[in-house]
Amino acid sequence: MPYAGRLTLYFFLTPVLLWLFLLIVIPHIDLFVISMQVENDDGDMVWSLLNYQAFFEEKIYWMTFVRTALYAILTTLLTFIITFPVAFYITKVLSIKYSGFFTILLLVPFWVSELVRIYGWMILLRESGVFNHFLLQLGLIDVPIEMLYNDISMVMGLVYTSMLFMVVPLISSLEGLDDSLIEAAYDLGASKPVIFAKIVIPYILPGITSGSIVVFMLTLGNYLTPNLMGGKNSLWFTEQIYNEFIASFNWNQGAAFGFLLLVLSTFIIWLGLKLTRQNLSRALS
């Protein structure tokens, strides 16, 4: 573009720099700075590692942290295991005539707010809920059972919430996989498991990576699902952050928790990218 000079560059660059520095870089630096401070007896802010020390010394804090990380990884795995067969069915098994319709059908529920979806599960699962109503009617149980407020219902809710972010990249990478590759493998005598392990999975690995990153990140940072579907003991780390900020009004402690969560999510995403030899820009586009 010989006639679009420096001016265009600054026109585009200035708002982008303002965005990235004012809304991303500086707030995160501030987050770190505040996490390294505590209020002393005079009400002044002083440098200190106390906030981090509290995290390691209070069992409930770091236990929640580890629990959250493990459950987020489990949710990511389960989401992949549950959605992969569906993505494969839609793209490769179902007659082409219907696959477009079923793909759209798959996406529609996820346009609806997460809160509404969780609310639906709550009415289904709770003690006075719809499932219990039917089980009682059918005479399968005599007293209603509480199916909500435990780890299983929480993980199910997390999987349900994040399925879209796995299924979309899976479908688009499966669409790129030419049927003739599978046919060729079949023709050469490969069995189904071998075809999946050697042809399909390696081909869609970039899709799996990007899906997993987004699902993991969203699960780790989720607040609504663990809060509304998990039990009294199913503490999620975001709830700790919320408590510090809103309930105890200890922003320094909350900032330390937030920073730790950021480190955790960055580390696991980095690890995932390294293990699958991907980079962030490819995984996100």
Partner: peptide, 27 residues
């Protein structure tokens, strides 16, 4: 590097974006 930075908001949990912007604006 700037492009990389512009991608990060999508992999930072929303809660953290919320609290860090809250803290920075308060400061």
């Amino acid at each position: 590097p700037l492009f990389f930075l512009s991608l990060t908001p999508l992999v930072i949990p929303g809660v953290i974006l919320g609290i860090s912007i809250l803290l920075a604006s308060n400061t």
